[in-house]
Design a protein around this nucleic acid. Structure first.
Lengths: 220, 220
DNA sequence: TTTTATAGTAAGTAATTACTTACAATAATG
DNA sequence: CATTATTGTAAGTAATTACTTACTATAAAA
C-alpha cells in the first residue's frame, strides 16, 4: 500500500529510459520493469504513455536556483561572480543531464511540451544574467552592449562545451576540468566586456585594419 | 530504369523524415512514399532500414569548406575574418539543419555512427580555427591562450544561438539578424582576445577585486 | 473483522512494424 | 526481337507495441 513510492519509481524509470532510448524506444514494459512494478500498474497510475511522459516533463524541471544567486553575485568581484555562475550552470546541466538529453532528442516529436520546459529555463537564465550585466553597466564596470546577447554568448560557450563533451562524446567532465574551462571562458569573456579606455585606433592597428579606408560592410 | 534517381530520392526522403520524426518514428513505408517509390524498392536497394540510415549519415556530411577558408582569412583584419568565419559557420548549420537534428536526437540510439560524423566535423573546425588563432598569436595580434579552447568558445556561442533559435524555438534566423548577432558575438570575443597592454591592477580595480588580499582559489 | 486501496498474474486485444515472397509490367540494351 | 535491369502489385510474415479485461493477493484502515 505504497502508492507514492510506486509513482516516484515509475517517473524516475521513465526519465532514465526515455533519456537513453528516446520516447519511442523506451517501451512501457521496460519502464515498468525498471521501476520494479507491473506494466498494468503503470497504466493504472498514468493512463497512457504520453501522460506519463508529460508528468516527467512537469516534474523534473531545472531548478531556478540560479535566480536567487543574483543578489550574492552583486557583492562579488566581476570575475569571481562569473566563474561561480558558470560553474553553477554547468553543474545544473550535469545534474539534469537526462532531461537535457530528452529535450534535445524529443523537440521534434513533442515541440510544445519540450519548448515549454526549455523556454522556462532559458528565459529565466538569460533574464537573470542579463540583469546582472545591467547593474554592472550602471556601475560602469563593463561597457555598453546588449545584456541579453552577452548572456547568450556566455551561457552558449558553456552549454556547447557541455553538449560536446557530455552528450556527444559521452565523457564525464570532472570538477578539475570544469573549473579550468570555466576559468578560460570567463577570462575571454571578462576582457571582452570590461569597460577599459580602448581607443578605436588602437584596436584598428592591432586588428590589422587600415583605418583610413572607408569601412565596408561585412559583405560575406 | 532510373536506378540512380531512385536511390537519391530515397536518401533525401530518409534524411528529411528521420530529422522530423526520429529514426524510430520514420517508418519505411513513409520514407518510400516520400520518395515516390514502393516500400519494396527501398528494401531492394538498401536491404534494411539501418543500412539506409547509415548511407544517409555517410553521404550528407558537413562540407569541410571552412578549412579552405583559412588562407583567405589570414589576409583579412582580425575582426572581419572572425565575422566571415562566424557567418559561414552559421550558414553551414542552417544548410545542414536536418543533419544537425538527427545528430542531436540520435546520439543515444546510434552513438558510434553519430559520433563519427560529429567528430569529423567538430575536430576539423576546431583545428582550423585554432590554427588561425595560433598564427595570430605569433604575429602578436592576440594574446596567449589555448587556441583550441578559444575556438570552442567562439564556435560555442554561435552554435548555442543556432540551437536555441532554429532547433528549439523553430524560428528562422534571417540574414540580417544573423549578421547582427555575429557582429556582437565577435565584438566581445575580439576584445577578449586582443593583445593589449592591460595592467593587472587596472583589471582588478575595474572588476572590483581588492588586490591586496591574498588571491583565493575559486572555491565554489 | 470487514472494507478498501493498491498491487500482481495471466491472457489477450488490435494495430503497426520491418521485412519477404511470388509474380507481372515496363523500358532500355544487346 | 529477346534479354535484362528496375519497378510495381499484392499478399503475408513474425514480432512488438500500447493498452485492456478478469481475477487474485495483501495489507492498512474502518
Amino acid at each position: 500500500m505504497k502508492k507514492h513510492g510506486t509513482e516516484e519509481k515509475l517517473l524516475e524509470a521513465t526519465l532514465r529510459l526515455i533519456s537513453e532510448k528516446g520516447y519511442l524506444g523506451a517501451t512501457t514494459r521496460e519502464i515498468a520493469q525498471g521501476a520494479g512494478v507491473t506494466e498494468l500498474t503503470l497504466f493504472r497510475h498514468f493512463g497512457s504513455k504520453e501522460r506519463l511522459f508529460e508528468e516527467v516533463l512537469s516534474r523534473y524541471t531545472f531548478l531556478p536556483k540560479l535566480k536567487k544567486l543574483l543578489p550574492e553575485l552583486e557583492e562579488l568581484p566581476y570575475d569571481k561572480a562569473l566563474r561561480i555562475l558558470g560553474i553553477r550552470f554547468l553543474e545544473t546541466l550535469k545534474e539534469r543531464k537526462p532531461l537535457v538529453k530528452i529535450m534535445l532528442s524529443e523537440v521534434n516529436l513533442y515541440p510544445d511540451k519540450i519548448r515549454f520546459v526549455y523556454n522556462g529555463f532559458i528565459d529565466e537564465l538569460i533574464q537573470t544574467l542579463g540583469g546582472y550585466f545591467k547593474s554592472l553597466q550602471k556601475r560602469e564596470v563593463i561597457r555598453r552592449f546588449s545584456p541579453e546577447i552577452a548572456a547568450r554568448a556566455f551561457l552558449g560557450m558553456i552549454f556547447s562545451y557541455f553538449l560536446s563533451e557530455e552528450i556527444m562524446a559521452g565523457r564525464n567532465i570532472d570538477k578539475k576540468e570544469m573549473e579550468k574551462m570555466i576559468r578560460k571562458f570567463t577570462d575571454i569573456f571578462i576582457r571582452g566586456t570590461l569597460k577599459i579606455g580602448l581607443k578605436k585606433s588602437t584596436i584598428d592597428k592591432l586588428v590589422g585594419r587600415r583605418t583610413k579606408l572607408i569601412r565596408e560592410r561585412a559583405d560575406v
